[in-house]
């Protein structure tokens, strides 16, 4: 099955897009960017403050574009760029310190109480083990379906289903225990 988000209208598969990008087809790179930016954003948001996430997303794609030649199997682009994103987030966090408390300010486009509740929910997701954290970020923040998460991260649909189910249980417990 192939799934496409609204901003991902290029019918080519990842491997074709990778090959085309290597041939300096900027349209192909933009298609990869549109397809994977929400995934990368979700992964990074699990590790960094919201206001830093957009910049780091861009940095991930710079790295991807300049190191694409090192990707041996173009069809494995999904798992590869997710690893690049995790490494970029960790590098950024080491270099800038922890500024996660600014999430509430970032969410202030909602009402004040909603901002606090949203920031608390985000913090609770971040506190989950990595597998659950990333899967729930992609589902609840980025709005992806389980099938999309599986395709974009390289996980099996079964693993995603388990991560969603167990992760939601842990998240609910954490939010209920919140003072």
């Amino acid at each position: 099955m192939t799934v496409r988000t609204a901003s991902d209208r290029d019918p080519r598969c990842d491997a074709d897009l990778v090959h085309a990008t290597r041939r300096r087809d900027s349209g192909a790179f933009e298609a990869l960017y549109a397809r994977y930016a929400p995934v990368i954003h979700g992964i990074i948001l699990g590790r960094l403050a919201a206001h830093d996430a957009d910049d780091v997303v861009q940095n991930v794609f710079i790295t991807a574009l300049t190191k694409l030649e090192s990707l041996r199997e173009p069809a494995a682009f999904a798992g590869w760029i997710c690893r690049v994103a995790r490494n970029a987030a960790e590098d950024f966090r080491r270099g800038s310190g922890d500024t996660l408390q600014l999430d509430e300010e970032y969410a202030s486009r909602a009402t004040q109480s909603q901002s606090a509740e949203a920031a608390a929910a985000l913090a609770a997701i971040r506190a989950l083990p990595e597998a659950y954290r990333e899967t729930l970020m992609l589902r609840l923040v980025e709005g992806m379906t389980g099938a999309e998460i599986a395709e974009r991260t390289g996980l099996t649909p079964g693993s995603v289903r388990v991560n969603l189910h167990r992760g939601m249980h842990l998240l609910r417990d954490a939010l209920e225990k919140r003072p």
């Binding site: 996430a53 957009d54 997303v57 969410a107 909602a110 909603q114 949203a118 985000l122």
Partner: peptide, 8 residues
């Protein structure tokens, strides 16, 4: 709640 953090 969390849609405010979604990638734009």
């Amino acid at each position: 709640l969390l849609v405010v953090y979604r990638y734009k």
